[in-house]
Nucleic acid binder design. Structure first.
Lengths: 341, 341
DNA sequence: ATAGTAAAATAAAACGTTTTAGCAAATTTA
DNA sequence: TAAATTTGCTAAAACGTTTTATTTTACTAT
């Protein structure tokens, strides 16, 4: 465990002041009129002995950690894992590191985690927030830490956010089903007040209303094992034999739904047409392949990081809330095609 | 941006020394014989004003950051995402935070990332390493930072590691295929010298040799788009019409392989039996469902964190390398069953 | 020669903790 | 009652930077 050498050690070696080295390292050599010979000498020595400044000390002094806190619902969910991957990439490219966690949609847990991140002096936050952390989020912003939300947003908060047109996309999905002759269309969704789920529900209902079709909504609790979710879906589908199509509100509901449908030995789309929110490797390869509402993951990550970096670089704290609503794409596949009459 | 108050501010408020507060906060009140009235008074005030120690300053002073560096091949890969999820959970439970990154199996990139983690004074590392970072890993260990590898290990390094019995499981998979009447069994794997891939290859070859069957190995480069991987697999399968079964070396090769098979309009398992390494949501729901070599993800994460925390708590640096080889499970499904004669 | 200015570098404070070493008062010992 | 010990607390150094304010040296103009 050899001791790392500090800027003071380096200064002693060179018989100069640590200040000078610091200036040079922080690109202030010119401004501070350090002679170019000295700059050269210092740089050479740094190279030679492999000196690296202690990031902790830098952070303590400057208040900047160059760390972004990323809080997703669940890193094991492919949607979030893919977003995380892209954000990570872009963050590192800009000199930022990522410290992350999964919220489990648990607001108490999330508040704890926010506190931990805050203790670590994270510079900025990217969050797919559970409900009920509005105060904490505004607190962060008041303290000067930018926050960008995604997937869903929080009402009455100053945070920026990137979401997709959830209502529009379920609306489009239902219309697609109607056009293909389906009339008894269910929406299996989460028992959640989060904006994205509410919007998806609204889009579904709006479309049904326009076609004067009856609603079949099943709301499932997020907080349970997959086994149980499947049981709930099975029960729902059994109770409603009149259904001829079903729209799933999230990727994992779609996956559980397919398992339920398999259990019931129903044919897709002959007995039941299927569309799911979020695309998934599975949907492409399933027989039949599953129509999905695919979110523009690349674009979402890009905007998230752009907004956050913008806030981190600017000194103008005054700018108002920034947001964007991106358009998902309905990828039509076999599971929702017209049944030959 | 209200200024956070420091231990000195707090000391002033209470008219005592910061030292005393520090002792109390670090559970040394008794040892340092601080009177219980004072302890009480301090704790009350801390509660009242919501004082939280500055973690950066603590880290600078103590050298401990309570941060674990997690480096996975690719966080978007469900195997790694699930491991990350479990590790994250266990780490937080023990007061550790996770800072993570994806290595892309790129050793240059990984070295950079290691340096970044080191700069951040990460306390310990969990890594699925690419080849070629042996020196760096040993360097970390020499500096007193424990490192636990997983999924694969590095030869001639002091790092602990957790792997699965890769050779044994491909051996078992091939035997299973043979027992079900398949004779021309291909192994589609990575063009990689990483231990896990080499071992998987060995198990495959051993089984084939014992049955005196001919080898059909296709090694695919990791560093390319999925589209291209699929093209390679298609070409391989077309070139080898005699094949009646194929074993895929990783989950994403399995997925790409299924796409290739679909393109070729081959029936599974009638035209081609399939087994893939790693389980995947897709494999369970595919028609037919896909036989998989499932890794004990929960157990892997548990052991990883246990070993790492053990190293982090102990002062005895002397202990020798710890390692474990866990047993994957062959989950037999429809894609590898006997064809009715 | 002398003041004034510019150039080049530095000392010291600050960031917020932990920890070592030690002091004064109270208590025990003999 | 004096010495020794225990109790209860604290001053100051240290961790490794950045930054402000300042000093020293060199040069220019009068």
């Amino acid at each position: 465990m050899k001791k790392k050498l500090s800027i003071v050690d380096l200064a002693k070696q060179l018989n100069i002041s640590p200040t000078t080295i610091s200036f040079i390292l922080n690109g202030k050599a010119q401004e501070k009129r350090i002679s170019s010979e000295l700059v050269e000498r210092v740089l050479k020595q740094i190279e030679e002995v492999g000196y690296k400044p202690n990031a902790l000390a830098q952070s303590l002094r400057t208040g900047k950690t160059m760390i972004i806190g990323l809080m997703v619902e669940n890193i094991a969910n492919p949607f979030f894992a893919n977003i995380a991957r892209l954000i990570e990439e872009k963050a590192y490219k800009n000199g930022y590191k990522i410290i992350y966690c999964s919220t489990d949609n648990d607001s108490a847990k999330t508040k704890d985690l926010l506190r931990i991140f805050q203790d670590r002096h994270v510079d900025g936050y990217i969050i797919s927030p559970p409900e009920g952390i509005e105060k904490e989020v505004d607190g962060l912003i008041d303290n000067g830490s930018p926050v960008v939300l995604f997937d869903r947003y929080l009402h009455d908060t100053k945070a920026d956010f990137i979401v997709v047109d959830n209502a529009g996309s379920t609306y489009e999905a239902v219309n697609h089903l109607v056009k293909n002759g389906y009339k008894n269309i269910a929406f299996i969704t989460l028992d959640s007040l989060q904006t994205q789920m509410q919007d998806r529900l609204k889009g579904y209902e709006k479309a049904l209303n326009e076609h004067a079709l009856s609603h079949h909504v099943k709301e499932i609790s997020y907080y349970q094992e997959e086994e149980n979710i499947i049981r709930h879906i099975v029960a729902f589908l059994e109770r409603k034999p009149e259904l001829d199509a079903v729209l799933f509100g999230t990727n994992y509901l779609g996956v559980s739904g397919l398992k339920a449908i398999k259990k019931l030995n129903k044919r897709v789309p002959e007995d039941l047409a299927v569309i799911s929110f979020d695309d998934h490797t599975l949907f492409e390869l399933h027989s039949p392949d599953i129509t999905a509402i695919s979110q523009p993951i690349e674009e979402i990550s890009e905007k998230l990081i752009t907004i956050l970096l913008g806030r981190l670089n600017k000194t103008s704290k005054a700018k108002k809330t920034q947001s964007a609503v991106l358009a998902p794409e309905l990828i039509v596949r076999g599971s929702s095609r017209k049944i030959k009459a």
